[in-house]
Simulated assay, not measured.
Amino acid sequence: MSRTRSAQPDPVATLRGGLPDRYLTPEDIAAMFGVPLETVYQWRKKRTGPPGFRIGKHVRYDPGDVRTYVDGLRTADAEAA
Rank of each mutant, 00 (worst) to 15 (best):
S2P: 10
R3P: 09
R3W: 13
R3G: 12
R5V: 12
A7G: 13
P9V: 12
P9Q: 06
D10E: 07
D10H: 11
D10A: 11
P11S: 07
V12T: 12
V12Y: 05
V12C: 10
A13I: 05
T14A: 15
T14C: 15
T14I: 11
L15D: 05
L15N: 03
G17C: 04
G17M: 09
L19T: 06
L19Q: 08
P20E: 14
D21R: 15
D21L: 14
T25P: 02
E27A: 11
E27M: 06
E27L: 05
D28T: 00
A31V: 05
A31G: 03
M32C: 03
M32Y: 05
P36F: 01
P36N: 04
L37N: 04
E38L: 09
V40T: 01
Y41P: 03
W43K: 01
W43A: 02
K45W: 11
K45I: 09
K46E: 12
G49K: 09
G49D: 11
P50G: 04
P50M: 02
P51V: 04
P51Q: 13
P51H: 03
F53C: 01
R54T: 02
I55M: 15
R60D: 03
R60Y: 10
Y61H: 03
P63I: 02
G64A: 10
D65M: 08
V66I: 04
T68Y: 10
Y69D: 04
V70M: 07
V70P: 08
D71C: 10
D71V: 10
D71R: 14
D71L: 15
L73D: 03
L73G: 07
R74N: 13
T75P: 00
T75L: 13
A76G: 08
D77E: 11
D77M: 06
A78Y: 08
E79Y: 08
A80Y: 08
A81E: 01
A81Y: 07
A81V: 15
